[in-house]
Simulated assay, not measured.
Amino acid sequence: MPTNNSGDSYLEYTECLDVISSILSMYSVSHRIVIVGDCNGTLKPPRKYNKHDFLLQAFVHEMNLQSHRSEESNFFHHSGMSTSQIDYILHNATIAFLSDYKIHDQCHSNTSSHVPVSAKMNVKSKPTNKAIKSGYISKFKIQWKDIESELYHNHISNELSQHNIESHSIEESINFLCNCLKKAATVAVPSKIIKLKGPQFKASPSTLMLLKISKEKYQLWKSNGKKNDHLKTDKILAQRNLRKKLRKEQYLDRTQFYNELMDNPSNDMFHKLIRRNRGSKNKDAICIMENGEHHYSATDQTNSFSRYFEDLAVPKDNGYDSEFLDLCNIRHNIFDELCKKAATNHNLVFKISVMQSNSYILARQQMN
């Protein structure tokens, strides 16, 4: 939801509430609706300086929305001077729909000014078997060079001694041997993770060091009772330094990618750009500047990219000499004018050239 510090926040906040109101009016009869997020307004006693509080409370009352009442804060300003409760889970159910509502404590790894708010929904649904996406499975690489040979052979020998191959079919024996080799490799061969489950952000050694410092400062502040003293100030400063470093690295990563895209454009780079923009709406370009002209609408931006691709498809050689090119153009124009003026003498010149060539050929033949 819009913040109280934006330009015309009252109008923007009202527009957001109108959109949510239309959704509730359309689906509240047939669906249970849950509204989750940062409302930038509180359901506690309204603050005189914040007009969003009155709008939010009137909206919740008008739409008969339910919420868990608590006095705990879930927003902590980075300066440490103020706290509030602005993150909510609202729903339109008349029965006990949510349970285990919880506002979590501050955590050293959470660099946000908000803390998580969670709840369990009591919903009955039919289980469906869905295939797990291969992109979200941890992958390992077996380090065969570091194998413990004796342990590996002993494990296989023990397994084979307990299995009578003659009493089983060929397929069963093959499956048993495959499983035996896998178990032996798991026991005797180390492995390393080459891909973790889920997306992971890039972190440089300096960022990891700041993250470690932030964790240590938080644990120290927590072990001393989370008092409002110099330990809290140190924790806030460590988290602030970590956020600055993360934002700087993200900016440098984006800058490097865009520079590489402009210097060495390729199909792979453009597909990567498309995938980056599809990943999050926050990464979409708000404005594109083309030859000093700014394009804000999606149609103009599409046309701009179309012209760029068209220009990119035309072969160019930027290593030529401009003066030499001008001289070639002048020579071409002179030859063109001479050819136009001497158009009537083309046949005569051609006959003379052919006669001279024939005479030269006959002379060479006589000499031979």
Score class of each variant (00 low, 15 high):
residue 270 F to A: 07
residue 208 L to P: 01
residue 204 S to D: 01
residue 318 N to Q: 10
residue 183 K to G: 09
residue 259 N to K: 15
residue 170 I to N: 10
residue 18 D to E: 09
residue 342 A to M: 12
residue 307 R to L: 09
residue 172 E to Y: 03
residue 325 L to A: 14
residue 324 F to Q: 15
residue 104 H to S: 05
residue 4 N to T: 09
residue 328 C to G: 10
residue 47 R to Q: 09
residue 229 D to K: 00
residue 112 S to K: 01
residue 365 Q to C: 05
residue 84 S to E: 04
residue 170 I to P: 12
residue 330 I to L: 14
residue 337 E to W: 00
residue 169 S to R: 00
residue 13 Y to R: 02
residue 274 I to P: 00
residue 166 E to M: 11
residue 280 S to A: 03
residue 127 P to T: 13
residue 294 H to I: 12
residue 188 A to V: 04
residue 58 A to M: 07
residue 50 N to M: 03
residue 340 K to D: 12
residue 319 G to T: 15
residue 351 K to T: 11
residue 87 D to C: 01
residue 65 L to P: 05
residue 60 V to F: 03
residue 333 N to S: 14
residue 336 D to L: 12
residue 179 N to L: 02
residue 130 K to Y: 08
residue 264 N to L: 07
residue 294 H to K: 10
residue 342 A to V: 08
residue 80 G to P: 06
residue 69 R to A: 15
residue 116 P to Q: 03
residue 101 Y to C: 03
residue 249 E to W: 04
residue 6 S to A: 09
residue 72 E to M: 03
residue 188 A to E: 04
residue 175 N to P: 07
residue 61 H to V: 12
residue 193 I to P: 12
residue 61 H to A: 15
residue 50 N to E: 05
residue 130 K to G: 11
residue 128 T to C: 11
residue 99 S to F: 08
residue 189 V to D: 03
residue 315 P to E: 06
residue 357 S to C: 09
residue 117 V to P: 00
residue 253 D to P: 03
residue 79 S to A: 05
residue 344 T to P: 10
residue 174 I to L: 07
residue 272 K to F: 05
residue 35 I to H: 00
residue 247 R to L: 09
residue 115 V to W: 01
residue 22 S to I: 11
residue 336 D to Y: 02
residue 38 D to P: 06
residue 251 Y to S: 15
residue 176 F to N: 02
residue 91 H to P: 04
residue 155 H to P: 06
residue 263 D to M: 07
residue 69 R to E: 13
residue 191 S to R: 14
residue 356 Q to Y: 08
residue 267 N to G: 11
residue 230 H to L: 13
residue 61 H to F: 14
residue 290 E to D: 15
residue 349 V to I: 14
residue 243 R to D: 05
residue 336 D to I: 07
residue 168 H to M: 07
residue 185 A to S: 08
residue 16 C to H: 09
residue 283 K to S: 03
residue 304 S to Q: 00
residue 344 T to E: 11
residue 174 I to K: 06
residue 92 N to E: 03
residue 219 Q to L: 08
residue 225 G to I: 08
residue 63 M to V: 02
residue 164 N to I: 06
residue 20 I to Y: 08
residue 42 T to M: 02
residue 49 Y to I: 14
residue 355 M to H: 11
residue 162 Q to H: 10
residue 261 L to G: 02
residue 230 H to T: 15
residue 150 E to I: 14
residue 152 Y to T: 04
residue 165 I to Y: 14
residue 320 Y to T: 13
residue 127 P to K: 15
residue 310 E to Q: 15
residue 358 N to E: 08
residue 33 I to F: 01
residue 331 R to Y: 04
residue 350 F to C: 13
residue 279 G to Q: 12
residue 246 L to W: 01
residue 3 T to V: 06
residue 150 E to R: 14
residue 167 S to L: 14
residue 100 D to P: 11
residue 66 Q to T: 14
residue 4 N to P: 11
residue 354 V to N: 10
residue 78 H to M: 11
residue 135 G to Q: 02
residue 321 D to R: 05
residue 267 N to K: 06
residue 345 N to V: 10
residue 63 M to R: 13
residue 54 F to G: 15
residue 11 L to V: 12
residue 231 L to V: 01
residue 304 S to A: 08
